[in-house]
Design a protein around this nucleic acid. Sequence first.
DNA 1: CATTGTGAACTTATTCACAGCC
DNA 2: GGCTGTGAATAAGTTCACAATG
Lengths: 224, 224
Amino acid sequence: MTSSKPNPSRPDPSSVPGAVVNRLSLYLRELQHLIGDGKETISSSQLGQRLGFTDAQVRKDLAHFGHFGHPGIGYRCEELVPAIRHILGTDRQWQVALVGVGNLGRALLGYRGFQKQGFRIVAAFEVEPEDVGETIDGVPVHHIDQLEHVLSEQDIELGLVAVPAEKAQEVTDKLVASGVSGILNFAPVTLAVPEGVSKVGVDLARELEQVTFAVANRGNQGTN
Amino acid sequence: MTSSKPNPSRPDPSSVPGAVVNRLSLYLRELQHLIGDGKETISSSQLGQRLGFTDAQVRKDLAHFGHFGHPGIGYRCEELVPAIRHILGTDRQWQVALVGVGNLGRALLGYRGFQKQGFRIVAAFEVEPEDVGETIDGVPVHHIDQLEHVLSEQDIELGLVAVPAEKAQEVTDKLVASGVSGILNFAPVTLAVPEGVSKVGVDLARELEQVTFAVANRGNQGTN
DNA sequence: CATTGTGAACTTATTCACAGCC
DNA sequence: GGCTGTGAATAAGTTCACAATG
């Protein structure tokens, strides 16, 4: 404990359930759309309605991190967006490395959504000699053996793993050894990462399986 | 109730929590790797260990759907894999339509992981005239106006939405009108779908935000 | 007076622990 | 002896409901 009176804007972050963080990023996305539509404030019930949550859920989630609302008014979009970005850690730029410039890797290099949220892919890596040396969407493709060297110079904190399943763990180990602290993994394997390194996995076939389960068992409207 | 004695292999599927289904597909993936490695049986504790769950969790999840284990032995991989595929609905082929052959759409067309799990993208759609008529990875690209027509002939049940956010709802409405019953959405918006249609959203920037939260708040090992 | 923030009630999910089985 | 399936116990997450508030 640093102070006797708990600071409402910075509660113990490791006690926050993952589901809350997931919803937080959903709130952020929706708020950004709302701002685009010129809306100035939104109530917890309106926001919840758009995303399929209750008003209480929205308020509780946000209350984990501070007092962002205004009684009688709701939440001011322009105020809440930077607050959530701060919580998520995206109130600054993150430099990202990509490993694997196959099909998916190339799509990630061109994906605009990353830049919009402050992510910049600044280096890509491959084993295939024919891809090395190329520049794709402004990003230089290095040989994978250069990974540690390039990362040591560029202050890259996040890694995208877009290699075949068999190579994913090996690549992950290299990223970790090079000091990366978070990984987004597109290979269909569960990666082992050391304590202190975070990872999230995106497996497209698994996502579709969630859909087929719901379809085969009629009426599960599903995760966002 | 259809019978007095509850059938253990087919419980009410809509009562199964989404988180269970999500883990189920993770079990499936791991089991498929295990078979590839020549392992014949696995215990709930071993399987749990590999994925970061408790043994009880694994057993409870599977017990939702039937009696798949063998006391003293564990689960037989070759037996459990088809059982889970049946539960998830992937014990058959699913025909899939893709809308949007930009960056991401093209990557999806070439993605091998879909085919491995029984998904076949059989038609793609675009607005941009220069892409229409093309064949990418063996998949014909039709004009979006042909969507309803093509889908009516091909028994396509799932749709992949890989268009810009502004067009995603419109495209979704068309897919739904054409009889699709499940949607995997890559656009960074929350889609509205009618009752009875299932959807799952994959927002790459949001996934990365889950990583940055964990990194910015040290030690949340993260999903998967 | 619409709307937040929040304890208390409730619901859902996870883990424990052990009888039953191979 | 090793391991499952499961009811009971515990923990976590969600909703209710209402006092506080600009």
